[in-house]
Design a protein around this nucleic acid. Sequence first.
DNA 1: ATTTATACTGCCGAGTCCGAAGTATAGAAC
DNA 2: GTTCTATACTTCGGACTCGGCAGTATAAAT
Lengths: 127, 127
Amino acid sequence: MEETPDAETESSDPVDADRDCLCPLGGVMELLSRRYAMQLVCVVGAIGPARYGDIEETFGSVSSSTLSTRLDELVTAGILSREQYAEIPPRVEYELTETGEELGEHLEPLLEWAEEIDADDVSVAQE
Amino acid sequence: MEETPDAETESSDPVDADRDCLCPLGGVMELLSRRYAMQLVCVVGAIGPARYGDIEETFGSVSSSTLSTRLDELVTAGILSREQYAEIPPRVEYELTETGEELGEHLEPLLEWAEEIDADDVSVAQE
DNA sequence: ATTTATACTGCCGAGTCCGAAGTATAGAAC
DNA sequence: GTTCTATACTTCGGACTCGGCAGTATAAAT
């Protein structure tokens, strides 16, 4: 997507490079801020072409309605692709698109960090 | 859900490093999945010691009740620190903790990517 | 006495999420 | 021919979360 241009025009001060537009509120971020969205991208990225049932099983604690909504949203956003096979019983496979792969690469270190932090001991709201 | 579905030995994938524990559902991730949480971490990281009003202004579109809740959660989770000065009118400053800084480093590339994607053209639900 | 400024909290209606149950289909079992 | 099975979802009611606006506390300035 982003061709890295010749890195000669970049300022030597990276701190205020993105001062004006710090954080996108709408678009993809709004989607990723919904429950399980980030984990969903990672899971699909990890188990390759994933069927609905596999995903549901991997999570264990997500309701099918929410999972279905989340999948829909990610497909619409172009992050996941959905392939439906004309078989009975039906078979549907979800996979990361190219965009989704990019996203996954950014998400993975975050989730790994979160895992570690949780494993250690943060005083995360236990109330 | 107690039985361990052990991985098929037939799969010849090299990417099984973290197959067993793909994505943390609770803890920090649940917090970050709430609205504006990730952006909030970035904003506080960017504008240094940030006052409530500054943050509210930077976002523009967040309700004060939600912002306040989110700040509380992040402070409780040890991601933000809150310093209150005994002045009138009151002054409160939020800052990233060490943990928060770590998180911010993982978050920044993600948000930058999201910005680009949004700027380009994803068919994100615009309905 | 009233105004001003800051950092919130409280309330209510609207939107989002959860769990369980239901839907559609065709082949297999009886 | 009727029932059973399996998959990938919907649909429903209720619970939780969010947004917008109004209100609170304080002391100095007017």
